[in-house]
Structure formats: C-alpha cells, structure tokens
C-alpha cells in the first residue's frame, strides 16, 4: 500500500506536475498560433520569436525593478514586469502588421505567401532579440523557489518519495487558468469577441454583416501578443530564457495547435497537454516508479526510458505526423492544414 502511494507521489513529482506546467505553457503558445490561423488565416512562424521578444522586454524591466529594489515578496518580480512586456509586444506586433502583413492582406496574398513572410519576420525578430539581450542564457527568477519542497513533503507525510511544487509551477497553472478563462469569456460573451469568431467562421458573411475586418485583425494581434508574452515569461521563469530555445518551442507549439485542430481555441489547450504529457511520459525514466509497483524479482535493470530527453522534439514531430496522416483536422475539428 505504501509502495503504491510512493509510486503515485514519484509519478506526480516527476511526470504529472512538470507535464501540467509545460502543457499550460504550450497551450498558451498554441492559443496564439491558433487565433492567428483562424482569423488571419496563416501559420505564423514568427510566434516563437514573438514570445521571445515579449519575454525579453519583461526580463529587462524585471532587472530594472530589481535594481530599484522593487520586489514582489515571495512571487517573482517578473510578474510585475509582465504588463510592460505585454505592452511592448503589442506595439511590436502592431508595427509588424502595419509594415509587413497589411501589405500582403491588401494584395489578398495566398496563405503560403503569408507563411514565407512570417518566416522573414521570424528571422528579423530573432536577430533583434539576440542583438538586444544576447544569445546566452538569462536567469531572472527571484522570490521563493518552492511552494512545497520535497523534504517538507516527506516530513509531512512520512513517505519515502517527496513531491516538490515549485513556485513557478504554481504560478504557471494559476496564470494559465486565469488567462484562458478571460480569453473564453471574451470570445464567447463580448460583441468584439463574437465578431472575431464570426470573422474566423465565414469572412464574407462577416463583411456583409458590417464587421470591420481591420478592427478584428488588430484585436487579434493584441490578444496574441498578450498570450505570447505570458506564455514566454512563464516558460522562462520555469526553465530559463534563451532566444534559441524559444525558436525551438515553435515545433511543440505548432504540434499542439495542429493536434487540437487549427483555429479551435479549445483544441489548442487540449493539444498543449497532449504534447506535453507525451513528451514527458516518453522521455521519463520509469525505473523508480516501477520499482515500487512490481515484485522485486521483476525489477528493471535499466532506466526504462523510452527516449532520451535530447530527442524530446521527436515526440512532438511524430504526434504531428500521426495526426496529419489520420485526422488532419485535429481533435476538435479545426481547419485542415
């Protein structure tokens, strides 16, 4: 019985909690991708670097606040800096839209042209972020590290396994829930939100109904900038900030959006967790959990790790392929790619 409890705790500590955290971060990223796809109708390859840009501004403001001696108690100062990051990111995407995407919209360019254009924007943002903050690893986390440490947990429960809960994990999940709730409230309850859904559903009819496309596009970019900055900052707090990592996040984020069904916000969230859980479950070394569960004679010799963590991106890629082959519209019947 105790063994079972220990197994559950170990599983939670190493798989469930990290996967829920990572899944929430991916879900927020994928929501941005899926909104752009649904409303502007292209796959935005610059999304990873948009996340990096917003996070970078958040980090710079965090450092400034830290230098001024401003803190947020046990919570990371970055949360105070977040609104500045979001505002800067909103300004960036509006300028990009005005200078780049609007031209192609006026031409009624094909989606594939938009994709190539977004790759160009991606390279520019990539360079911009590295130029400003450098290509290296940046740490900006402060405040309390843990809500519960493994040792406290062991002392409280008397179990051999500990369940640590990092502050960043708690913040990620709480923030994600709040942001998603706000987003769905906006999309389903407000006039502007409904007009965005209408525009995504049937552009011609939306125009006939008097919905202003410029306004829909602008509001979409503002929401996407906020989502990208929040997702990037949460990821950076939880792991660390490095421009190249954010570029790499593009694959799991897109995988999440496509698995869920491009254009479907609900799908983006589900997809985020599907990808995160698959990645963590497949790259986790199961030896510890199995040791508690199977009789001694059957104890595994190896680590029982299906795939090294170095190959974690392969997991998103394989899931992506499977979905595209067998259910191209994704779990929630988005638009076919």
């Amino acid at each position: 019985m105790i063994d079972l409890l220990n197994a559950i705790v170990a599983l939670s500590n190493f798989v469930l909690v990290p996967a829920v955290t990572y899944g929430s971060q991916l879900a927020l990223g994928a929501l941005g991708v899926t909104l752009i796809y649904g409303i502007l109708r292209f796959s935005n390859f610059a999304h990873g670097d948009t996340m990096a840009f917003g996070t970078m501004v958040t980090i710079l403001v965090t450092w400034g606040l830290q230098a001024l001696g401003v803190g947020f108690g046990p919570l990371p100062t970055a949360l105070l800096a977040l609104p500045f990051g979001i505002a800067a990111c909103m300004a960036l995407v509006l300028v990009t839209d005005r200078m780049v995407y609007r031209f192609y919209r006026a031409q009624k360019a094909k989606p594939v042209v938009f994709v190539i254009v977004s790759i160009g924007v991606m390279f520019i943002l990539n360079g911009l972020v590295r130029f400003i903050i450098g290509p290296g690893d940046q740490r900006f986390r402060d405040g309390e590290n843990f809500i519960i440490t493994a040792r406290d947990f062991k002392d409280m429960t008397g179990l051999r396994e500990g369940l640590a809960l990092k502050t960043t994990q708690g913040i990620t999940v709480v923030t994600a829930v709040i942001v998603v709730a706000l987003l769905f409230w906006f999309l389903n309850r407000t006039r502007t939100g409904k007009s965005m859904r209408a525009y995504s559903d049937n552009e011609d009819l939306a125009l006939l109904s008097g919905i202003n496309p410029d306004r829909v596009v602008m509001v979409t970019w503002l929401i996407v900038a906020a989502l990208a900055t929040v997702a990037g900052t949460l990821y950076g707090l939880d792991k660390s900030f490095k421009p190249f990592t954010y570029f790499q996040l593009l694959l799991p984020v897109f995988a999440a959006a496509i698995v869920g069904g491009l254009g479907s916000p609900l799908g983006a969230i589900a997809g985020g967790y599907v990808i995160a859980f698959s990645e963590v479950l497949i790259t986790y070394a199961w030896k510890k959990v199995l040791t508690y569960l199977v009789p001694e004679a059957l104890e595994p010799d190896g680590l029982v790790q299906l795939l090294s963590t170095n190959y974690k991106f392969a997991v998103s890629f394989v899931i992506l392929l499977i979905v595209l082959l067998f259910r191209p519209t994704g779990l929630f019947r988005g638009k076919a790619v």
Binding site: R191, A198, S200, D201, N202, L208, S209, G210, I211
Partner: peptide, 30 residues
C-alpha cells in the same frame, strides 16, 4: 447593407460554428 439592403447569399450564408442566437446577433452587428 448600411443603406438598408439585406442580402442572403446562396451558400455559406450562416456562421456554422456559432449558435443560432449568435448568428442573429452578428446579423445586427451594425
């Protein structure tokens, strides 16, 4: 439309993913 012409296209004339009530609301967007 703003001058008072209502037009129902032959196809793609509703917002399929939205509820009936939301369709009507969007019709009255102006």
């Amino acid at each position: 439309v703003r001058h008072g012409m209502g037009f129902v296209p032959q196809t793609h004339n509703i917002f399929t993913s939205m509820t009936v009530e939301e369709n009507l609301e969007m019709g009255a967007f102006i």
